[in-house]
Amino acid sequence: MCFGYLRRAALAGLLCLAATGAGARELLIGYLALADDARYDARQLEHRYQGQPGGRPLAGAEVALDEADFGAQAQGLALRLVAVEADAADGLAAALDALRAQGAHFVLVDLPAAPLAALAAATRGRDVTLINVSAAADALRGAQCQAHLLHTLPSEAMAADALAQYLVSRKWRRVLALVGPTPADRARMDAFAAAAKRFGLKLAAERPFRLSNDPRERELGNIALLSAGEDYDAVYVADSDGEFARDAQYRTVLPRPVVGSAGLVAEAWHWAWERNGAPQLESRFRRHAQRPMTGTDWAAWVAVKAVVEAALRAPADAAAMDAWLRGPDAVIDGFKGARLSFRPWDGQLRQPVFLAHGNGVAAAAPIDGFLHPVNALDTLGPDRPESACRP
């Protein structure tokens, strides 16, 4: 096993399968990111808002590689991780072209939704597979989907469906929605509105909020005013940044639970999950990264685990690995208590979603009683007939 980290390099992090002397094979696992990704700004990270990254997900990939190393070596497979940060989004496609020239096929990608969509479109039809570990945007699984793009982080729709199922199970059917001013806030709200319709919730009202120093907009940041004048069982907050949502709890006019971007949050991972070997994984991650594991860390961890498993199960070449990952025989243990696999219609990893608060996990969706004719995990996010993905 080998870890490597590069910056401003011609090659941007790769995952390829190659023969390495005396019948041994080498699996080089790469991680591609942007140097100035605002999601990992130090000032943003120090707030530790619920549902936000705790740091670069590279740490999750490193832990997964370390875990897989012993078993891989026993089967003659040497593992290596190479990571790079590109200086700007306009250099990503060229970096991938250089990777392909060196034989790269699989690339873990830690990018915001817009540059990831552009990169996926630019590499359409080429001999490369991208694995999205940090962008939850539904469009990447829908209208902007690509045949060579997989996703290990749950989508906004999956998170919204998980919350909606829980609210229905608790009989909290009337929901007041507070939505922020950014496109990401709007997309999150749209996902929840669709989930509410799907599972029979009623939106009592939808009200905009805005954090501003302008006295004329002061009322738009006042939670007491925003939550007055309606009857509701819960308050849903769509706040992709997390600053407004943090203060929503215990400040609503009616004493009601806050869900969405604070309070009860749908997450890919939470440090307090105590089943399925999760405490052991959390402990290993904390020793390595010196912080709790978050959803994006888990997404990078499971992405590496899935590709290493593919290399062991279908070692012939990258095409065989690809076929195994996307096929019906792929089963991945994500330490969540369910058999995980990639959906063939949009490349999304099926998985449970945790409904977590600050110090614990209230439930794991799909919630008992929400059934599906094939796989209950497909009650989270668009099912095959509903998918807008046409790669």
Rank of each mutant, 00 (worst) to 15 (best):
Y5R: 09
L6M: 12
R7N: 12
A10Y: 10
A10T: 12
L15C: 11
L17P: 02
L17C: 07
A18I: 10
G23V: 14
R25Q: 15
R25P: 05
R25E: 11
I29Q: 02
L32E: 11
L34Q: 13
D37T: 12
D37C: 07
D41I: 09
A42D: 14
R43D: 14
H47A: 14
Q50Y: 02
G51F: 02
G54E: 09
A61K: 00
V63W: 03
G71P: 03
A72N: 00
A72G: 05
Q75N: 08
A78C: 04
L79W: 01
D87R: 11
D87Y: 05
A88P: 01
L99C: 13
L99Q: 14
R100M: 14
R100K: 12
G103N: 10
L111V: 12
A120D: 03
A122T: 04
T123C: 09
R126A: 12
V128K: 06
V128H: 07
T129L: 10
N132D: 14
A136E: 14
L140K: 09
L140D: 08
R141S: 11
C145H: 14
C145V: 06
Q146P: 04
T152H: 05
L153F: 06
S155K: 02
A157Q: 13
A162H: 00
Y166R: 07
S169G: 05
K171L: 00
V175F: 06
G180V: 03
P183R: 10
R186L: 08
R188W: 04
M189S: 09
F192Y: 10
A194P: 00
K197F: 00
F199T: 07
K202H: 07
L203Q: 08
A204G: 04
N213E: 10
D214P: 06
G221M: 05
N222P: 01
S227L: 07
E230Q: 13
A234Q: 02
Y236P: 03
V237E: 06
D239K: 06
D239P: 02
S240E: 11
G242A: 12
F244S: 01
Y250E: 13
V258P: 01
V259C: 03
V265L: 03
H270I: 00
R275W: 04
N276H: 10
L281A: 00
S283F: 09
R284P: 02
F285T: 00
Q290S: 07
D297S: 08
W301K: 01
W301I: 03
K305G: 01
V307R: 08
V308Q: 03
V308L: 01
R313H: 12
R313C: 05
R313V: 13
A314N: 10
A314F: 09
P315C: 13
A316G: 13
D317E: 14
A319S: 11
D322K: 14
D322V: 07
D329R: 14
R343E: 15
Q348N: 15
L349K: 09
L349M: 15
P352R: 12
F354A: 01
H357S: 01
I367M: 07
I367C: 06
D368W: 04
F370E: 13
F370C: 12
V374C: 06
V374M: 14
D378V: 12
G381A: 10
P382R: 15
R384W: 13
A388M: 11
A388T: 13
A388C: 10
